[in-house]
Write a protein that binds this DNA or RNA. Structure first.
Lengths: 158, 158
DNA sequence: TGGTTGGTTCTGTACTTGCAGAACAAAAAG
DNA sequence: CTTTTTGTTCTGCAAGTACAGAACCAACCA
């Protein structure tokens, strides 16, 4: 209990917050996520989060809703108590990461369309564009293969 | 020649621009990149780019420098002519993509540090955090393996 | 010497982001 | 009913982004 208030852990929260932020989330979202990671017990109420991070209610509310909409956080309630206990949903975190990694981008297709539209006067350049497209397709397939591999591994371990 | 001014191609440029933008670049950067993709011949001067896209010189200058600093664009010159001919550097594009995909994020390590700092009162939660960390490490390794595989494939084809 | 070309850098500004703080809402407690 | 608890939503602002336009600069040109 309260192993999460030490100087070291608070720094950890900041660091993780920044990493999450760089992954494209808002600063406050990263802090809230990190706060729930170090939280001991692994859940916190709305205003525990607020006081832990020293940010406004609206920031906490927005962050929690952003995270819940991505299923990276959920909450439990205790019978007869209205208050919610928010906690990290690691399963959701992992599937969110899978989704991000899958990068089913439109790019490979668009590059093929570009080559299709180009003249054939610069075959070397066209070849390069196609290779770029192929690289992306290749990586997409490999990554989804890796995800399957992970899932198979997990299934076996159970 | 001038296969790049059709309505369809202009739309392609916009679409690609948006995709690049979503990948974290500035709007103008995406447009310039896309413009060089469809350019026929595959190079354009500074002011051809400017007129093609209808944006300001400063926007073009910023975009080109951003792209050149990442080696996604370079330029050639013709003897006795000061003007630069900018062109897509697909090799640089691909290595840029590799770099992005590699995601050597600090996250797995940070998650281990979090678990290290936590009490052992909630072993299930700790286990979940570790699994998240392991998933990321796994994907990192798989992705770098996939990149090696691609490189081996390319090496063989030559 | 001054003018033109090719591009960079500076300045101002419209737009966007991210959050605080306050007002608000719904449920529960008194 | 009134007050408190547990949040949500609205309003406003400070800071950051992205670009236009202009000033600028270096190289070449007449």
């Amino acid at each position: 209990m309260k192993t999460d208030t030490s100087r070291y852990v608070k720094e950890l929260v900041e660091t993780i917050g920044v990493v999450v932020e760089k992954a494209g989330f808002q600063p406050a979202v990263g802090r809230v996520l990190a706060c729930l990671m170090v939280s001991d017990p692994p859940y916190k109420t709305f205003d525990e989060i607020q006081r832990y991070l020293g940010i406004s209610k609206s920031a906490v509310s927005n962050a929690l809703n952003a995270l819940m909409s991505r299923e990276m956080v959920d909450y439990i309630t205790k019978p007869g108590v209205r208050r919610r206990y928010f906690q990290l949903a690691t399963a959701g975190m992992i599937s969110q990461m899978k989704k991000r990694l899958s990068l089913h981008s439109a790019m490979p297709e668009l590059l093929r369309a570009v080559v299709e539209a180009r003249s054939n006067k610069y075959p070397k350049f066209n070849r390069s564009l196609l290779e770029t497209s192929e690289f992306l397709s290749f990586m997409e397939k490999e990554i989804s293969g890796a995800i399957d591999k992970w899932e198979a591994l997990k299934a076996k371990k159970l």
